[in-house]
Design a protein around this nucleic acid. Sequence first.
DNA 1: TACTCGTGGAA
DNA 2: TTTCCAAGAGT
Length: 372
Amino acid sequence: MASQHQPRKPDPETGDAIAALLLAWYDRHHRELPWRVAPRELARGARPDPYRVWLSEVMLQQTGVETVKPYFSAFVEKWPTVEALAAADTEAVMKAWAGLGYYSRARNLKACAEKVAALGGRFPDTEAGLRELPGIGPYTAAAIAAIAFNRPAAVVDGNIERVVSRLHSIATPLPQAKAEIRERMEQLTPASRPGDFAQAMMDLGATLCTPRKPRCMLCPLVEKCSAVIAGDPEFYPVRPAKAEKPLRRGAAFVAVRADGAILLRKRPDKGLLGGMSEVPTTNWTARSDGEATASAAPFLADWRRVGSIGHVFTHFSLELEVFRAKTGGDTPAGHFWSLPIDISGEALPTVMKKAIEAAIPGATRKTLKRPA
DNA sequence: TACTCGTGGAA
DNA sequence: TTTCCAAGAGT
Protein backbone atom coordinates (compact mmCIF):
# COMPACT_ATOMS: atom_id res chain seq x y z
CA MET A 1 0.00 0.00 0.00
CA ALA A 2 1.45 3.31 -1.02
CA SER A 3 -0.79 5.11 1.43
CA GLN A 4 1.13 3.92 4.45
CA HIS A 5 4.15 5.81 3.22
CA GLN A 6 2.30 9.09 2.88
CA PRO A 7 2.74 11.52 5.74
CA ARG A 8 -0.21 12.01 7.97
CA LYS A 9 -1.68 15.31 8.84
CA PRO A 10 0.71 16.81 11.39
CA ASP A 11 -0.58 16.71 14.91
CA PRO A 12 -1.31 20.37 15.74
CA GLU A 13 -0.65 19.75 19.44
CA THR A 14 2.92 18.59 18.96
CA GLY A 15 4.01 18.06 15.37
CA ASP A 16 3.50 21.60 14.13
CA ALA A 17 5.08 23.13 17.21
CA ILE A 18 8.11 20.86 17.00
CA ALA A 19 8.57 21.51 13.29
CA ALA A 20 8.37 25.24 13.83
CA LEU A 21 10.88 25.19 16.67
CA LEU A 22 13.27 23.00 14.71
CA LEU A 23 13.05 25.03 11.48
CA ALA A 24 13.73 28.25 13.41
CA TRP A 25 16.81 26.59 14.90
CA TYR A 26 17.88 25.33 11.49
CA ASP A 27 17.61 28.81 9.98
CA ARG A 28 20.25 30.00 12.45
CA HIS A 29 22.39 26.93 13.05
CA HIS A 30 22.30 24.76 9.91
CA ARG A 31 25.57 23.33 8.67
CA GLU A 32 27.05 24.70 5.45
CA LEU A 33 27.64 21.73 3.17
CA PRO A 34 28.82 21.64 -0.45
CA TRP A 35 25.71 19.81 -1.66
CA ARG A 36 23.25 21.82 0.38
CA VAL A 37 21.21 24.88 -0.59
CA ALA A 38 20.89 27.08 2.49
CA PRO A 39 17.41 28.12 3.65
CA ARG A 40 18.18 31.73 2.76
CA GLU A 41 18.86 30.73 -0.83
CA LEU A 42 15.75 28.55 -0.97
CA ALA A 43 13.70 31.54 0.17
CA ARG A 44 15.12 33.47 -2.77
CA GLY A 45 13.85 30.80 -5.12
CA ALA A 46 17.01 28.75 -5.58
CA ARG A 47 16.36 25.05 -6.19
CA PRO A 48 18.67 22.17 -5.32
CA ASP A 49 20.16 20.23 -8.24
CA PRO A 50 18.65 16.73 -7.95
CA TYR A 51 21.88 15.25 -9.34
CA ARG A 52 23.94 16.74 -6.54
CA VAL A 53 21.35 15.80 -3.93
CA TRP A 54 21.31 12.21 -5.17
CA LEU A 55 25.10 11.95 -5.43
CA SER A 56 25.60 13.29 -1.93
CA GLU A 57 22.92 11.06 -0.41
CA VAL A 58 24.44 7.92 -1.91
CA MET A 59 27.91 8.89 -0.74
CA LEU A 60 26.58 9.65 2.73
CA GLN A 61 25.06 6.20 3.18
CA GLN A 62 26.80 4.92 6.33
CA THR A 63 29.60 7.42 5.68
CA GLY A 64 30.62 10.56 7.56
CA VAL A 65 30.24 14.08 6.19
CA GLU A 66 33.95 14.91 6.40
CA THR A 67 34.85 11.70 4.58
CA VAL A 68 32.41 12.45 1.77
CA LYS A 69 33.36 16.07 1.09
CA PRO A 70 36.50 15.50 -1.04
CA TYR A 71 34.87 12.65 -2.96
CA PHE A 72 31.81 14.76 -3.69
CA SER A 73 33.98 17.60 -4.98
CA ALA A 74 35.99 15.27 -7.19
CA PHE A 75 32.88 13.65 -8.66
CA VAL A 76 31.04 16.87 -9.52
CA GLU A 77 34.19 18.27 -11.06
CA LYS A 78 34.75 15.19 -13.19
CA TRP A 79 31.08 14.55 -13.92
CA PRO A 80 29.03 17.73 -13.48
CA THR A 81 25.77 16.18 -14.68
CA VAL A 82 24.02 12.85 -14.50
CA GLU A 83 24.48 12.49 -18.26
CA ALA A 84 28.23 12.93 -17.87
CA LEU A 85 28.32 10.27 -15.17
CA ALA A 86 26.19 7.95 -17.29
CA ALA A 87 28.68 8.31 -20.13
CA ALA A 88 31.72 7.66 -17.93
CA ASP A 89 33.68 4.41 -17.93
CA THR A 90 32.67 2.20 -15.02
CA GLU A 91 36.34 1.66 -14.26
CA ALA A 92 36.86 5.43 -13.93
CA VAL A 93 33.97 5.60 -11.48
CA MET A 94 35.41 2.76 -9.40
CA LYS A 95 38.78 4.53 -9.32
CA ALA A 96 37.15 7.77 -8.18
CA TRP A 97 35.22 5.86 -5.49
CA ALA A 98 38.28 3.97 -4.19
CA GLY A 99 38.68 4.46 -0.43
CA LEU A 100 35.07 5.43 0.20
CA GLY A 101 33.95 1.86 0.93
CA TYR A 102 30.77 -0.11 0.24
CA TYR A 103 31.78 -0.44 -3.38
CA SER A 104 28.44 -1.78 -4.60
CA ARG A 105 27.30 1.81 -4.15
CA ALA A 106 29.63 2.86 -6.96
CA ARG A 107 28.26 0.23 -9.34
CA ASN A 108 24.68 1.12 -8.46
CA LEU A 109 25.53 4.80 -8.86
CA LYS A 110 26.67 4.23 -12.41
CA ALA A 111 23.68 2.00 -13.21
CA CYS A 112 21.32 4.60 -11.74
CA ALA A 113 22.92 7.40 -13.75
CA GLU A 114 22.40 5.42 -16.94
CA LYS A 115 18.73 4.88 -16.15
CA VAL A 116 18.17 8.54 -15.33
CA ALA A 117 20.02 9.60 -18.49
CA ALA A 118 17.66 7.34 -20.44
CA LEU A 119 14.78 9.26 -18.84
CA GLY A 120 16.10 12.44 -20.40
CA GLY A 121 18.40 13.27 -17.51
CA ARG A 122 15.56 14.00 -15.11
CA PHE A 123 15.26 12.15 -11.83
CA PRO A 124 11.79 10.90 -10.86
CA ASP A 125 10.24 13.46 -8.50
CA THR A 126 8.32 11.04 -6.30
CA GLU A 127 9.38 8.62 -3.60
CA ALA A 128 7.91 5.67 -5.50
CA GLY A 129 9.62 6.63 -8.74
CA LEU A 130 12.98 7.13 -7.05
CA ARG A 131 12.65 3.89 -5.12
CA GLU A 132 12.79 1.91 -8.38
CA LEU A 133 16.30 3.08 -9.18
CA PRO A 134 19.36 1.01 -8.21
CA GLY A 135 21.05 2.08 -5.00
CA ILE A 136 18.05 4.12 -3.87
CA GLY A 137 16.31 2.55 -0.87
CA PRO A 138 13.67 3.86 1.53
CA TYR A 139 15.89 6.48 3.13
CA THR A 140 17.47 7.88 -0.03
CA ALA A 141 14.17 8.00 -1.93
CA ALA A 142 12.54 9.98 0.86
CA ALA A 143 15.54 12.28 1.24
CA ILE A 144 15.72 13.15 -2.47
CA ALA A 145 11.93 13.59 -2.69
CA ALA A 146 11.96 15.97 0.26
CA ILE A 147 15.18 17.89 -0.39
CA ALA A 148 15.20 18.10 -4.18
CA PHE A 149 11.46 18.07 -4.92
CA ASN A 150 9.87 19.57 -1.80
CA ARG A 151 7.75 16.47 -1.18
CA PRO A 152 6.58 15.91 2.43
CA ALA A 153 8.26 12.52 2.64
CA ALA A 154 9.10 10.98 6.01
CA VAL A 155 12.89 10.81 6.02
CA VAL A 156 14.37 8.34 8.52
CA ASP A 157 18.11 7.83 8.88
CA GLY A 158 20.25 6.88 11.85
CA ASN A 159 20.28 10.43 13.22
CA ILE A 160 16.52 10.71 13.00
CA GLU A 161 16.03 7.32 14.62
CA ARG A 162 18.02 8.63 17.57
CA VAL A 163 16.29 12.02 17.74
CA VAL A 164 12.78 10.57 17.45
CA SER A 165 13.40 7.71 19.86
CA ARG A 166 14.52 10.28 22.44
CA LEU A 167 11.77 12.76 21.67
CA HIS A 168 9.18 10.04 22.35
CA SER A 169 11.28 7.88 24.72
CA ILE A 170 10.79 4.79 22.57
CA ALA A 171 12.26 1.90 24.56
CA THR A 172 11.58 -0.74 21.92
CA PRO A 173 14.98 -1.91 20.63
CA LEU A 174 16.03 -1.30 17.04
CA PRO A 175 15.30 -2.47 14.45
CA GLN A 176 11.86 -3.36 15.84
CA ALA A 177 11.26 0.27 16.68
CA LYS A 178 11.62 1.39 13.06
CA ALA A 179 7.89 1.20 12.31
CA GLU A 180 6.97 3.36 15.28
CA ILE A 181 9.76 5.83 14.53
CA ARG A 182 8.55 6.14 10.95
CA GLU A 183 4.99 6.82 12.12
CA ARG A 184 6.24 9.51 14.45
CA MET A 185 8.31 11.07 11.70
CA GLU A 186 5.29 11.09 9.39
CA GLN A 187 3.35 12.98 12.04
CA LEU A 188 6.19 15.43 12.56
CA THR A 189 6.98 16.21 8.91
CA PRO A 190 5.44 19.55 7.89
CA ALA A 191 3.82 20.25 4.53
CA SER A 192 5.97 23.37 4.26
CA ARG A 193 9.76 23.03 3.97
CA PRO A 194 9.89 19.22 4.35
CA GLY A 195 13.43 19.12 2.93
CA ASP A 196 14.74 21.64 5.43
CA PHE A 197 12.89 19.81 8.19
CA ALA A 198 14.59 16.50 7.32
CA GLN A 199 17.99 18.16 7.13
CA ALA A 200 17.30 20.00 10.38
CA MET A 201 16.56 16.70 12.13
CA MET A 202 19.82 15.28 10.78
CA ASP A 203 21.83 18.35 11.77
CA LEU A 204 20.32 18.18 15.24
CA GLY A 205 21.32 14.54 15.53
CA ALA A 206 24.82 15.23 14.23
CA THR A 207 25.60 18.29 16.33
CA LEU A 208 23.47 18.26 19.51
CA CYS A 209 21.45 15.08 19.88
CA THR A 210 24.60 12.97 19.58
CA PRO A 211 24.89 9.28 20.54
CA ARG A 212 26.92 10.10 23.63
CA LYS A 213 26.73 13.18 25.84
CA PRO A 214 23.95 14.99 23.99
CA ARG A 215 24.03 18.74 24.48
CA CYS A 216 20.43 19.05 25.58
CA MET A 217 20.93 22.51 27.05
CA LEU A 218 21.36 23.85 23.51
CA CYS A 219 18.54 21.83 21.95
CA PRO A 220 15.53 23.73 20.61
CA LEU A 221 13.33 20.73 21.44
CA VAL A 222 14.47 20.19 25.01
CA GLU A 223 11.10 21.13 26.47
CA LYS A 224 9.35 18.71 24.12
CA CYS A 225 11.70 15.81 24.72
CA SER A 226 10.22 12.90 26.62
CA ALA A 227 13.65 11.36 27.27
CA VAL A 228 14.93 14.56 28.84
CA ILE A 229 11.85 14.81 31.02
CA ALA A 230 12.40 11.17 32.04
CA GLY A 231 16.00 12.08 32.86
CA ASP A 232 18.09 9.86 30.60
CA PRO A 233 18.25 10.83 26.93
CA GLU A 234 21.43 8.84 26.37
CA PHE A 235 19.53 5.62 27.08
CA TYR A 236 17.82 5.93 23.69
CA PRO A 237 17.79 4.39 21.14
CA VAL A 238 18.06 0.86 22.48
CA ARG A 239 20.24 -1.32 20.26
CA PRO A 240 20.95 -5.05 20.45
CA ALA A 241 24.46 -6.15 21.38
CA LYS A 242 26.79 -6.69 18.45
CA ALA A 243 28.35 -9.97 17.43
CA GLU A 244 32.07 -10.33 17.86
CA LYS A 245 34.17 -10.03 14.73
CA PRO A 246 36.06 -13.16 13.73
CA LEU A 247 39.68 -12.90 12.62
CA ARG A 248 40.74 -14.05 9.17
CA ARG A 249 44.28 -14.42 7.92
CA GLY A 250 45.96 -14.53 4.56
CA ALA A 251 48.99 -13.48 2.54
CA ALA A 252 49.42 -10.74 -0.07
CA PHE A 253 52.04 -10.69 -2.82
CA VAL A 254 53.53 -7.50 -4.17
CA ALA A 255 55.41 -8.29 -7.38
CA VAL A 256 57.65 -5.45 -8.57
CA ARG A 257 58.91 -5.22 -12.15
CA ALA A 258 62.25 -3.61 -13.05
CA ASP A 259 60.48 -0.34 -13.99
CA GLY A 260 58.70 -0.27 -10.64
CA ALA A 261 55.34 -1.48 -11.94
CA ILE A 262 53.24 -3.57 -9.53
CA LEU A 263 51.21 -6.61 -10.51
CA LEU A 264 47.47 -6.24 -9.93
CA ARG A 265 44.30 -8.10 -10.74
CA LYS A 266 40.61 -7.26 -10.65
CA ARG A 267 38.18 -8.79 -8.15
CA PRO A 268 34.81 -10.18 -9.22
CA ASP A 269 32.06 -7.60 -9.55
CA LYS A 270 30.00 -9.08 -6.75
CA GLY A 271 30.91 -9.70 -3.14
CA LEU A 272 33.52 -8.16 -0.89
CA LEU A 273 35.40 -5.27 -2.55
CA GLY A 274 33.48 -6.16 -5.70
CA GLY A 275 34.89 -4.77 -8.92
CA MET A 276 37.95 -3.31 -7.22
CA SER A 277 41.61 -4.05 -7.94
CA GLU A 278 43.98 -5.92 -5.64
CA VAL A 279 47.44 -7.40 -5.36
CA PRO A 280 47.31 -11.19 -5.54
CA THR A 281 46.42 -12.78 -2.21
CA THR A 282 45.65 -16.17 -0.74
CA ASN A 283 42.14 -16.91 0.41
CA TRP A 284 41.34 -15.27 3.72
CA THR A 285 40.65 -18.06 6.15
CA ALA A 286 39.95 -18.46 9.84
CA ARG A 287 43.25 -20.28 10.42
CA SER A 288 46.76 -19.16 9.58
CA ASP A 289 47.86 -21.28 6.65
CA GLY A 290 51.56 -20.76 6.18
CA GLU A 291 51.66 -23.75 3.86
CA ALA A 292 49.52 -22.15 1.22
CA THR A 293 51.51 -18.96 0.81
CA ALA A 294 54.08 -20.07 -1.76
CA SER A 295 51.61 -21.91 -3.94
CA ALA A 296 49.11 -19.04 -3.85
CA ALA A 297 51.58 -16.51 -5.22
CA PRO A 298 50.96 -15.55 -8.85
CA PHE A 299 54.25 -17.23 -9.83
CA LEU A 300 57.41 -18.64 -8.35
CA ALA A 301 59.80 -15.92 -7.26
CA ASP A 302 62.12 -14.95 -4.47
CA TRP A 303 59.31 -13.90 -2.15
CA ARG A 304 60.47 -12.08 0.96
CA ARG A 305 58.18 -11.40 3.87
CA VAL A 306 58.22 -7.64 4.50
CA GLY A 307 55.67 -7.36 7.28
CA SER A 308 52.00 -7.64 8.00
CA ILE A 309 49.02 -5.34 7.95
CA GLY A 310 45.73 -5.39 9.78
CA HIS A 311 42.37 -4.19 8.55
CA VAL A 312 38.85 -4.23 9.96
CA PHE A 313 35.86 -4.86 7.72
CA THR A 314 32.23 -4.65 8.73
CA HIS A 315 31.92 -8.22 9.91
CA PHE A 316 35.47 -9.54 10.27
CA SER A 317 39.03 -8.48 10.94
CA LEU A 318 41.87 -9.36 8.61
CA GLU A 319 45.60 -9.90 9.04
CA LEU A 320 47.64 -10.13 5.88
CA GLU A 321 51.26 -11.26 5.74
CA VAL A 322 52.86 -9.19 2.99
CA PHE A 323 55.48 -10.63 0.64
CA ARG A 324 57.52 -8.81 -2.00
CA ALA A 325 59.64 -10.01 -4.91
CA LYS A 326 61.45 -8.45 -7.84
CA THR A 327 60.23 -10.16 -10.96
CA GLY A 328 60.46 -10.22 -14.73
CA GLY A 329 57.84 -8.79 -17.02
CA ASP A 330 55.68 -11.84 -17.58
CA THR A 331 51.99 -11.16 -17.04
CA PRO A 332 50.02 -14.01 -15.46
CA ALA A 333 46.56 -14.58 -16.90
CA GLY A 334 44.00 -12.18 -15.49
CA HIS A 335 46.63 -9.81 -14.10
CA PHE A 336 48.01 -6.46 -15.24
CA TRP A 337 50.92 -4.16 -14.41
CA SER A 338 50.42 -0.74 -12.93
CA LEU A 339 53.23 1.78 -13.31
CA PRO A 340 54.31 3.90 -10.31
CA ILE A 341 52.64 7.01 -11.74
CA ASP A 342 49.34 5.11 -12.06
CA ILE A 343 49.24 3.32 -8.70
CA SER A 344 47.62 6.12 -6.68
CA GLY A 345 44.84 6.37 -9.26
CA GLU A 346 44.00 2.66 -9.38
CA ALA A 347 40.72 1.30 -8.01
CA LEU A 348 42.49 0.05 -4.90
CA PRO A 349 40.52 -0.36 -1.68
CA THR A 350 42.23 0.86 1.46
CA VAL A 351 43.24 -2.61 2.63
CA MET A 352 45.17 -3.12 -0.62
CA LYS A 353 46.87 0.24 -0.36
CA LYS A 354 48.00 -0.80 3.11
CA ALA A 355 49.48 -4.01 1.74
CA ILE A 356 51.32 -2.19 -1.04
CA GLU A 357 52.60 0.44 1.39
CA ALA A 358 54.00 -2.33 3.60
CA ALA A 359 56.02 -3.60 0.65
CA ILE A 360 56.88 -0.28 -1.02
CA PRO A 361 56.51 2.71 1.29
CA GLY A 362 55.10 5.71 -0.55
CA ALA A 363 53.96 3.74 -3.58
CA THR A 364 50.28 4.68 -3.27
CA ARG A 365 50.90 8.30 -2.33
CA LYS A 366 49.50 10.84 -4.74
CA THR A 367 52.27 12.14 -6.98
CA LEU A 368 52.48 14.62 -9.79
CA LYS A 369 49.70 14.66 -12.31
CA ARG A 370 50.17 12.49 -15.30
CA PRO A 371 51.16 14.62 -18.33
CA ALA A 372 48.20 15.21 -20.61
C1' DT B 1 14.39 -11.39 8.92
C1' DA B 2 19.19 -11.65 9.05
C1' DC B 3 23.40 -11.29 6.68
C1' DT B 4 26.70 -8.98 3.75
C1' DC B 5 29.07 -5.01 2.61
C1' DG B 6 34.36 -0.36 4.11
C1' DT B 7 36.31 3.05 6.24
C1' DG B 8 37.87 6.44 9.50
C1' DG B 9 37.03 9.54 13.35
C1' DA B 10 35.80 10.16 18.11
C1' DA B 11 35.67 9.03 22.93
C1' DT C 1 43.36 0.26 23.25
C1' DT C 2 38.77 -0.91 22.14
C1' DT C 3 34.31 0.24 20.88
C1' DC C 4 30.97 2.62 18.57
C1' DC C 5 28.86 3.96 14.61
C1' DA C 6 27.86 7.41 10.24
C1' DA C 7 22.52 10.89 5.61
C1' DG C 8 21.58 2.22 4.28
C1' DA C 9 20.84 -0.99 0.31
C1' DG C 10 20.67 -5.55 -1.64
C1' DT C 11 19.66 -10.16 -1.12
